[in-house]
Design a binder for these strands. Structure first.
Lengths: 164, 164
DNA sequence: ATAAACATTCAATAAGTTTTGAAAGTATAA
DNA sequence: TTATACTTTCAAAACTTATTGAATGTTTAT
């Protein structure tokens, strides 16, 4: 397989994967491109390589910064900004887990807590309370695992894998 | 809080959560409704409660069956079909993990394997190979954890949580 | 202060996804 | 077999999300 073909294929696949992960395609593709480039790239270069508009690239680069998986780099003598992806896959997984925890687990726990306060003693209400309590308990457990994962180091994780 | 309000709130929140999980809103909302109802519901009843069209309800009930998180129930003397959600949260988590593994991890591993076969000895190619290899190795580890999780029982999981 | 180089915003548009509902299909009962 | 009850399909419409690119804002160099 040609390098150009392989590169396209990877960027494409990463974009698709992103979509089923709440990360939009452009964002995931830019990330993929930065992942496979050792040097940092300017917005211009990303536009060029991925054939995306300036606005789109700018917006999604900022989103990547926001997720903490891409960093800005200044080059001496250069005015424009350059961007580089953190190449540590472990760190990437941690950052993504962290963001998803914040954006998904936390809000659902909040709602589950709230609706627990439903009034009444009817059958429907009892069932409702029972089910939402189970979900809440489980969510707390997941939250707990995620928290530990996020705070842990790579070694901890690999040791855990061994144990399984 | 009133039962009706709590119910709406929960169904709403579950729908939103679903969206960031690759599960469409209607599908997640139907699932939420079935989760909080002990008895099975007919398509008609779901339509009524969620104010959705027949086509939408039918389509998404089939998707839920497909994901293995909702089951058909036949009632004697009744011609129509009824649907019930599995109330075991643990089992739900397992089923969802199973489907997501199949739909997401497996395809990306396949692509990563493929692009590993890229030809050339240039700097770009070497970097590309190194990065995609790292991603592949990590994906295999995740796949492995998921596989064990899917095949395990609830007890295993809770014991694991204790250890963390 | 001005110009040049670059970054950001945002309204318009395009693309993608979900939802509808009527029509077609299927199974059951009489 | 025919009518009825129910399910499935699918093209069109509604809705949502992503993308563009020109206009605006900001920084730096002269």
């Amino acid at each position: 397989m040609e390098y150009t073909e392989a590169k396209q294929k990877f960027i494409q696949a990463w974009g698709t994967l992103g979509s089923s992960w709440g990360i939009n395609k452009a964002m995931a593709q830019i990330h993929a491109l930065l992942l496979i480039k050792e040097e940092s790239l300017s917005a211009e270069e990303v536009m060029e390589e991925l054939q995306m508009s300036r606005g789109n690239v700018n917006m999604n680069l900022r989103a990547l910064l926001d997720w903490g998986i891409v960093e800005k780099v200044s080059k001496i003598g250069e005015r424009k900004e350059f961007f580089i992806a953190n190449k540590d896959v472990w760190e990437l997984a941690r950052q993504v887990s962290k963001e998803r925890r914040r954006r998904e687990i936390e809000p659902i726990i909040k709602v589950l807590e709230q609706v627990q306060g439903v009034e009444g003693t009817g059958k429907d209400v009892k069932e409702f309370k029972a089910m939402t309590k189970e979900l809440k308990d489980f969510s707390y457990k997941v939250d707990d695992v995620l928290e530990k994962f996020i705070k842990s180091d790579q070694n901890w994780f690999y040791k855990l894998l061994m144990k399984l």
